[in-house]
Design a protein around this nucleic acid. Structure first.
Lengths: 255, 255
DNA sequence: CCCAGTATTCCGCTGAGCGGAATCCGCCGC
DNA sequence: GCGGCGGATTCCGCTCAGCGGAATACTGGG
């Protein structure tokens, strides 16, 4: 299926270079040349030329074992993105405050297609290590922050997500008719709770963050071990923080 | 001087696309098309084609005002870079601990050419707001973390940096013969102090972080208002933390 | 040494990329 | 409303940068 010239598939050099970068993810942080070629579907020679060109411009670096990985130039450019500047940088002190109040891991996420994108999390050395890392894309229906984004999302989003609900634990809600009223409750009560729906042993609580025009643009949540989770304590802390943070986000211009 | 075809300047499409991305920095986070063309030196039409291609692949986004900015795809890819995964993610809990002990802003940095690259910093809502943001590139000779990296850097690095020492405040050391013995002291005592050398009112203390083979690969520092800075208290906290963190960094493979 | 897998090099071919020029668009001042 | 200006977009003939199959080199394990 990869027998025709790249140009016959209507892609540009820029597109192909970005496809190379896009072949990297958390499970494929470091890759040999052949793996990149296989994952992109591009001919080996093309990938070979592209990775070397990307290396020349510091977008990729090559480790001592010859494997390729994303270079710090990309990271540095990424710190200019709105998700970093307008959200993460603004939210971080507030997340610190939430963390200081309960020593529970704190995270923020935004909507990204049909998933939520974890923007950052605060986790001291004593908190849960299962917490998803920045850059992770999580299911909307099985995480606190995801449910918030889903509940306050468009009808189209909800229908698309409810159309296929994957299972992660035996607590995951995979029945649309069970989840739909939950979303309505989340909307009205202004917070979401998930109990071991993505990860065994982890309970999370999340609230919406609003940007300009009051639109829900992100979600703030905490994740705790289920046996020590204090939902009724977490909710007011999160809601007060979210109100202050939302004001700040309006100021700094998050869309 | 931009009259010849791009190809006559020996650059590739990939290189030019990356030059477009590279035209963005903290002072030019959002740019109109013409500004990108001016800053890259590429013809307007070329830039026009490239930004639209980059937008197609989510590397750039366009704001409501028509200006271009870095997209979250780049940010997400950046979270795969070693500086993020192997350093920042590992160091963050330790930085939290340092912060919790003194409420002073904490930062980590790595060497990047002849400057230091700020990887992250912890600053609650009550700490100094002049602290440099992730992705900032600071002078080596005028910051605590920078001096550490310089002191433990190669002779070539030191000579290159000592060759031109810019002034930032009236406290900045711009005389190589004053700085050189300082670097030796930093090496032997294992920490660096700067007092208002980059920013009026800010004192910073920093210590080295070591990766594999004991090489200094990063620096950990705190920044406080000069009137409340307690250097003699900060140093042991930083050094103990750095020892623990360095062990961790060896484990996780930071080069 | 042999083999298999991986990375690199080679090179004739051609259409993707080039960019100056023309056109369109939006905003502002009169 | 009009004109001017700055910025963005479109057009299109031209050509060499990019293409990728094939050959070659390299590396590691048996």
């Amino acid at each position: 299926m990869h027998e025709s010239r790249a140009s016959e598939r209507g892609d540009s050099v820029t597109g192909r270079a970005l496809a190379v970068l896009d072949s990297f993810d958390a499970e494929h942080r470091r890759q040999p040349l052949g793996a990149i070629a296989r994952r992109t579907g591009l001919p080996l020679t093309t990938v070979h030329r592209l990775v070397h060109e990307l290396e020349r411009h510091e977008a990729l670096v090559r480790g001592p074992d010859g494997d390729w990985e994303i270079g710090s130039k990309i990271w540095r450019l990424g710190t200019l993105a709105s998700v970093h500047v307008d959200l993460r940088e603004v939210a971080l002190p507030y997340m610190e405050d939430v963390y200081a109040l309960g020593n529970d891991a704190v995270q923020i996420a935004v909507l990204d297609g049909l998933r939520c994108l974890v923007v950052d999390r605060i986790a001291g050395s004593r908190t849960m290590s299962v917490l998803s890392k920045p850059g992770s894309r999580l299911p909307l229906h099985a995480t606190g922050v995801g449910k918030v984004l889903l509940a306050f999302g468009t009808t189209e989003l909800q229908e698309a997500v409810l159309g296929s609900l994957d299972r992660y634990t035996d607590r995951t809600i995979t029945d649309a008719e069970t989840l739909r009223p939950q979303l309505r409750t989340i909307r009205s009560q202004g917070f979401a709770v998930t109990r071991e729906e993505l990860t065994p042993g982890a309970t999370s609580v999340a609230v919406p963050l609003r940007g300009r025009r009051g639109a829900v643009t992100a979600a703030l949540g905490v994740v705790s071990p289920s046996e020590s989770a204090e939902v009724s304590k977490m909710v007011p802390v999160l809601q007060v923080t979210a109100a202050a943070l939302s004001s700040k986000l309006v100021e700094t211009g998050l869309a």
